[in-house]
């Protein structure tokens, strides 16, 4: 029998698969297990006490609020931007597509600083806001604003390649059959993009909940006021409350695992429908 592919010798195959398992184990699985092991190291009772601590509960609430405001905003923006750059040719289209990548490339700390400079009490918009008794920085609106910045590419980035690949012929057909713009979007576009849209939302949500660098610049870390869950994790860790820090971390880890499950499911469905 003639050899058809390289790397199919049983010993090599076993070696490479073994190495991959070893690396994934060391780099990903063990850290994941360690989070839960640390959180539960003082027993289940302490775990519950830590979880129902009033500052922890407040951090959970604030984090949910941030995600609830950020994700819909970026969902709407993502759909409009994707529609714009995939359905129309116009000057500046490429620049627009490069601009949207900026939040991926910029360090989150720089992002936070930009907002602080603009809206903080020393900033040129900030002093006007101060005169009108509006405080955005070191308060929850600032956290929402930087999170919108950090997560704004996610939905658009998922939609653009898909919508480009699909083309616009189905939408044009709907219009020529007399559908209104809204009907066309709801009946044709939305069903075609719903998986990618959902995946973009899940990714944006994971990032919105977990953002640390940008949020820590504008939050002011006031316990029970402007502490999101990741900042709460940091605060507890700095207080040498390891078990407490890891208890809050488990919530974020569970969310990360759920994100991976949804992603795997959506990819599996996509493969099924492709067959």
């Amino acid at each position: 029998m003639h050899q058809q592919r390289i790397g199919d010798q049983p010993w090599l195959r076993r070696l490479l698969i073994g190495l991959a398992f070893l690396l994934v184990g060391i780099l990903l699985v063990v850290p994941l297990v360690a989070i839960f092991a640390q959180a539960l190291s003082a027993g289940l009772n302490i775990f519950w006490v830590n979880l129902s601590d009033k500052y922890t509960l407040h951090a959970i609430g604030l984090t949910l609020l941030v995600a609830a405001l950020t994700v819909p905003l970026n969902l709407v923006f993502g759909v409009f931007l994707a529609w714009l750059v995939t359905r129309f040719e116009f000057p500046g289209r490429r620049i627009l597509m490069t601009l949207i990548d900026i939040p991926f490339a910029v360090s989150p700390v720089v992002a936070g600083l930009m907002y602080l400079l603009l809206y903080g009490s020393n900033g040129w918009l900030g002093s006007w806001l101060m005169d009108h008794d509006l405080q955005l920085m070191f308060a929850w609106p600032g956290i929402v604003m930087v999170t919108v910045f950090i997560t704004c590419p996610f939905v658009a980035r998922e939609l653009i390649p898909l919508m480009q690949q699909q083309g616009s012929s189905e939408e044009e057909a709907a219009l020529s059959l007399g559908a209104s713009g809204w009907q066309m979007f709801r009946r044709v576009t939305l069903p075609n993009i719903k998986c990618a849209l959902l995946y973009g939302v899940v990714l944006a949500n994971a990032r919105a909940v977990g953002e640390f660098g940008a949020v820590s610049v504008v939050s002011g870390n006031i316990r029970g006021e402007t502490n999101t869950l990741p900042l709460h994790v940091e605060l507890l860790y700095q207080d040498y409350n390891l078990v407490g820090a890891f208890t809050s971390a488990t919530l974020l880890a569970v969310l990360a695992l759920l994100t991976l499950v949804v992603k795997t499911f959506l990819e599996w469905r996509q493969q099924q429908s492709a067959r």
């Binding site: 994934v24 990903l28 699985v29 850290p31 994941l32 360690a34 989070i35 640390q38 990714l203 994971a206 909940v209 977990g210 953002e211 640390f212 660098g213 869950l229 990741p230 900042l231 994790v233 940091e234 860790y237 820090a245 890891f246 971390a249 974020l252 880890a253 969310l255 990360a256 695992l257 994100t259 991976l260 992603k263």
Partner: peptide, 16 residues
Amino acid sequence: LVDLPFALPTAVAGIT
């Protein structure tokens, strides 16, 4: 699991 680092908040990765 390969995508875990994108899904896990960086502060959690850091303390872990």
